[in-house]
Amino acid sequence: MSNRMSYFCSTIGRKQLIGLTGIGLSLFVLTHMLGNLLIFVGPEAYNKYSHALVSNPAIYIAEAGLLLIFVVHLLLASFINLKNRFSRPQKYAVASSGPKKTTWIQKTLWHQGIIILVFLILHLITFKFGTEYLVAYDGKEIRDIFILVRMAFEDPKYVIWYIFSLIILGLHLHHGLASSIKTLGFNHPKYEPKVNCIAKAYAWTVSIGFITQPLYFYFFYKG
């Protein structure tokens, strides 16, 4: 039969890969957010944590893996988005309403992804590849990432952009995470409401966890 297309060419296969990579990225943002919370402990804890991460040789493997997951997620999602547009060449004149409505959060998942991509690039330029200030603890010099963060969040424009982007990340996970779980084949009537609830709580925990940082520095931090 000619119907034996490859799993990776099928819409379901691609969606499942988007879901799997999405879940991988969700785990990454959670650990990143939790690590960031060390900023409330103090500059030393934060800088030492950061140093421990970047000085570990496994970081290169982890970063390469993360990049791969991100690229797969982005490319497949873009491809699927394009296919979806072709699937309805002529749009409706009137949008659906009432119980048959699709929410704007669900409709703009790809656009959210693009904003997150732009944010990510700027974020890497600002922090990872930003100015290298140094600080010495116990006679050992390591990178002072804390001061870089503090300086970045002194600029109200950057604070607003950061908070906006993180709200977008929250929205992206709000639908994306719960949907990924269904795409991977889990939708049991007994567990579905709870799974949905946990996925949404996860999304906003990550988003709000990140947002506490600029708010802390801009409004509360006193040298």
């Binding site: 819409t11 379901i12 691609r14 296919k83 979806n84 072709f86 699937s87 929410t103 669900q106 269904k182």
Partner: peptide, 8 residues
């Protein structure tokens, strides 16, 4: 040529 499911 149907599109993909987004579980909306």
């Amino acid at each position: 040529g149907f599109g993909a499911c987004t579980n909306t």
